[in-house]
Design a protein around this nucleic acid. Structure first.
Lengths: 108, 108
DNA sequence: GCACTCGTACGATGGTTGTCGTACAAGCGA
DNA sequence: TCGCTTGTACGACAACCATCGTACGAGTGC
């Protein structure tokens, strides 16, 4: 286990729960966030502010928190920005094919 | 379009919404119902009462209603009993691979 | 007809959640 | 240092939801 400096708590791969993941993805705003994250997840990690969803900042924070605590995304800080990445590998390991099926169904 | 006598309202295949389906499946009790439905879905259609989940009758009715309105299951009456089937084909058509991924992840 | 079973309907209730506004902490840049 | 940007924290609020109990309707069997 590499010792990762992580100020923000995340569930481990083993702690991922299907119900929590499905619940996190069942919210249209969050689903859109995940879809965008998946779309531009080549090399850059979008910050929270780079999503122009139709909600305020605090609501955005709330949704990112739900996604993070469900284990769907990983967040880490760089300066004042908070960078977000999809936890593709962990999700694929625990729930094979699920994320892809959801993203495909979401019309990404 | 065959004219089906159906007293209970169901969404059409085109009306299925990803968010509603994910929300319906994100509840542990409902997920277990769906898993059992998938397991014994060979020829028999289980009635509502044949699920011995840890909730009362009325809660059970509520969960079946949520699943039905999300389009996950189809219900029809035979006498006083209500028979339940998984809408595999419709789900597969709209959200390919999703149901299988969920069921596999649920440990069925 | 009469009980019994199956499932629904309705109301109540306590908990969860999505939304927002405001205030605040932490960096960055001039 | 002094704003400006980024995002969080907290409180508030309305809406939703899972749960239950009770009452009821519709069939089935005696």
């Amino acid at each position: 286990m590499p010792q990762v400096i992580e100020e923000i708590p995340h569930p481990t791969r083993e702690q991922l729960e299907l119900s929590a993941v499905l619940h996190a993805l069942s919210e249209p705003v969050r689903l859109e966030m995940v879809a965008r994250l998946a779309a531009c997840e080549l090399d850059d990690e979008p910050t929270c502010g780079s999503f122009d969803v139709a909600v305020t900042k605090s609501t955005c924070t709330h949704h990112f928190k739900v996604l993070r605590e469900a284990g769907v995304i990983r967040q880490h800080r760089r300066g004042t920005a908070r960078l977000n990445t999809l936890r593709r590998d962990d999700l694929e390991a625990r729930f094979p094919g699920l994320l892809d099926a959801v993203l495909r169904s979401a019309g990404v």
